[in-house]
Design a protein around this nucleic acid. Structure first.
Length: 269
DNA sequence: AAGTAGACCAACCGCGTCAAT
DNA sequence: TATTGACGCGGTTGGTCTACT
């Protein structure tokens, strides 16, 4: 289907927003609330497209946004969530109160990725694999891919939401395991083996209600139920799921180390 | 002081999805 | 059922600042 441009580009301002533009947008949203972004340029006289207005509001003007000074706790959480969810910035941001997906994405790209790469370079057997058909050169390009990378987000359809709600109401590990088995049984397109990387059943973690947990609650959440998942991951990964390579030991294959689970679960683990 | 490289981050772009018609 | 507009997302770009030579 054809796709029309989001807005007429002629005559629109581009680049940094001015204080006046910000004020116009704030005033409009104060009166009319969020949404109907397409109407904003027409009704306020702003020479910006609706998309720009939305982005500006969500990332900078919204009153409850916290900017800069990402704490150690937040950084730890971003690292864990990124390992869990991949580049699903909006989901990660949903677990970090008052942080935007754009800020987290930028922070990851500018700061955390390097840290992760530095850490991985100290672990010679993990992820540092040569590209098929090419030998490692002197400066191998280290592409750190999270276990659950999905380059494009998948949204919940209504059916999936139903599923998700069931899981939330009855968050038993059994249900999760069965869901995982179902996912394993219908190999997508008949091509992809179900792996840590493409197993959509992990969305049950990704799709916990945003705002359901505060940062502190998330960090202190009861992750003991994940121990069952952890063993599944070990099983899957021992079958060679991590980016197609076989981990050298089951310990390396585990998404969550015992220490991580212990940390997350607290003393009750 | 001038030039350059790298880091940071705000904003833009293209695409997938949803909902209304 | 097909079409269309709007929204939301992740990836990318480009401007600005800072450190270094």
């Amino acid at each position: 289907m054809g796709r029309s441009p989001c807005c007429e580009k002629n005559g629109l301002n581009r680049g940094a927003w001015t204080a006046l533009e910000d004020q116009l947008l704030i005033d409009y949203i104060k009166i009319h609330g969020e949404g109907r972004w397409g109407k904003i340029p027409k009704e306020t006289g702003l020479k910006r497209c609706g998309k720009s207005c939305r982005l500006r509001w969500l990332n900078y003007l919204k009153p409850d946004i916290k900017r800069g000074n990402i704490t150690q706790d937040e950084e730890d959480l971003i690292l864990r969530l990124h390992k869990l969810l991949g580049n699903r910035w909006s989901l990660i941001a949903g677990r970090l109160p008052a942080r935007t997906d754009n800020e987290i994405k930028n922070y990851w790209n500018s700061t955390l990725r390097k840290k992760v790469q530095a850490n991985h370079s100290e672990l010679p057997n993990i992820e540092k694999k040569s590209v098929k058909g090419k030998s490692n050169d002197a400066t191998p390009s280290l592409k750190i891919e999270p276990c659950l990378t999905t380059t494009k987000p998948t949204r919940c359809t209504k059916d999936e939401e139903l599923d998700h709600n069931t899981l939330v109401e009855e968050p038993s590990i059994k249900g999760v395991m069965e869901k995982s088995k179902e996912a394993n049984s219908d190999s997508r397109d008949g091509l992809l083996p179900i792996t840590c990387e493409n197993d959509m059943s992990w969305n049950f973690i990704a799709d916990l209600n945003p705002g359901q947990f505060s940062l502190t609650e998330f960090l202190h959440a009861d992750f003991t139920k994940l121990s069952g998942l952890n063993s599944m991951i070990v099983e899957d990964c021992n079958n060679g799921c991590i980016n197609g390579s076989s981990p050298s030991s089951s310990e390396e294959a585990r998404m969550f180390t015992d220490e991580m689970l212990k940390n997350w679960a607290g003393d009750s683990f």
